[in-house]
Amino acid sequence: MKLTTKGRYAVTAMMDLALHAKLDRVSLVDIAERQKISLAYLEQLFRSLRKAGLVLSVRGAKGGYMLARDAKEISLADILVAADENINLACGGGNTCNDAKPCLTHNLWTNLSREFFAFLHSKKLSDVVRTRHVQTLATQQDILQIGDIPIQFNR
């Protein structure tokens, strides 16, 4: 299994949305700018995420997107499934291997797929955005997006 750009971008965009949830609504333009993802691509992704019930859209001048549920309730597996990412590690032997006529390694890959999915399901969006690494990078992105604002330190 190789995680495609679609899956990686879906997780990245949802992390950005969770990080900026305090703003109430986040525009796709802002996510695209911070994460260097094409706006058109994000629009396609967010249609899938909205259809899966992970995000809500608000129209209008102060519109944007917000999480449909608390970040503690959204798993990485939920996001990848919504993005139609194939997270099956099965051997994929075509005609030589299937559930009815498995190859020697079929059960190994099937079990690994189950464990991998369980791992992704156990990782909540809230967990991944709280790490120091993610928080540091998000702060840097926000500073870059705001621009060069002189900061004065009092000693």
Score class of each variant (00 low, 15 high):
Lys2Glu: 14
Lys6Ala: 14
Lys6Phe: 06
Lys6Gly: 06
Lys6Tyr: 08
Arg8Asp: 09
Ala13Cys: 10
Met14Arg: 10
Asp16Ile: 03
Ala21Arg: 08
Ala21Thr: 02
Ser27Ala: 10
Ser27Thr: 15
Leu28Pro: 02
Val29Ile: 08
Asp30Cys: 03
Ile31Ala: 02
Glu33Cys: 01
Arg34Ile: 00
Gln35Phe: 00
Ser38Leu: 02
Leu39Lys: 11
Leu39Gly: 02
Leu39Pro: 00
Ala40His: 04
Phe46Cys: 03
Ser48Tyr: 09
Leu49Phe: 03
Arg50Asn: 07
Arg50Ala: 08
Lys51Asn: 05
Ala52Lys: 01
Gly53Asn: 10
Leu56Tyr: 06
Val58Ala: 06
Arg59Pro: 03
Gly60Lys: 07
Gly63Trp: 07
Gly63Glu: 05
Tyr65Ile: 06
Tyr65Thr: 04
Leu67Thr: 04
Ala68Val: 02
Asp70Ile: 00
Lys72Ala: 10
Ile74Arg: 00
Ile74Asn: 01
Leu76Tyr: 05
Ile79Pro: 03
Ala83Trp: 12
Asn86Gln: 00
Asn88His: 06
Leu89Tyr: 03
Gly92Arg: 03
Gly93Val: 04
Thr96His: 13
Cys97Pro: 06
Cys97Ile: 11
Cys103Phe: 03
Leu104Glu: 12
Leu104Met: 00
Leu108Gly: 02
Trp109Thr: 14
Asn111Cys: 08
Asn111Gly: 10
Glu115Tyr: 12
Phe117Asn: 14
Phe119Tyr: 15
Phe119Thr: 14
His121Phe: 07
Ser122Met: 10
Ser122Leu: 07
Lys124His: 05
Ser126Cys: 05
Val128Leu: 06
Val129Lys: 11
Arg130Ala: 15
Thr131His: 14
His133Met: 14
Gln135Leu: 12
Thr139Gly: 10
Thr139Val: 11
Thr139Leu: 14
Gln140Lys: 11
Ile143Ser: 04
Ile143Arg: 09
Gln145Leu: 15
Ile149Gly: 04
Pro150Val: 14
Pro150Asn: 13
Ile151Met: 12
Gln152Pro: 01
Arg155Ile: 12
Arg155Ala: 13
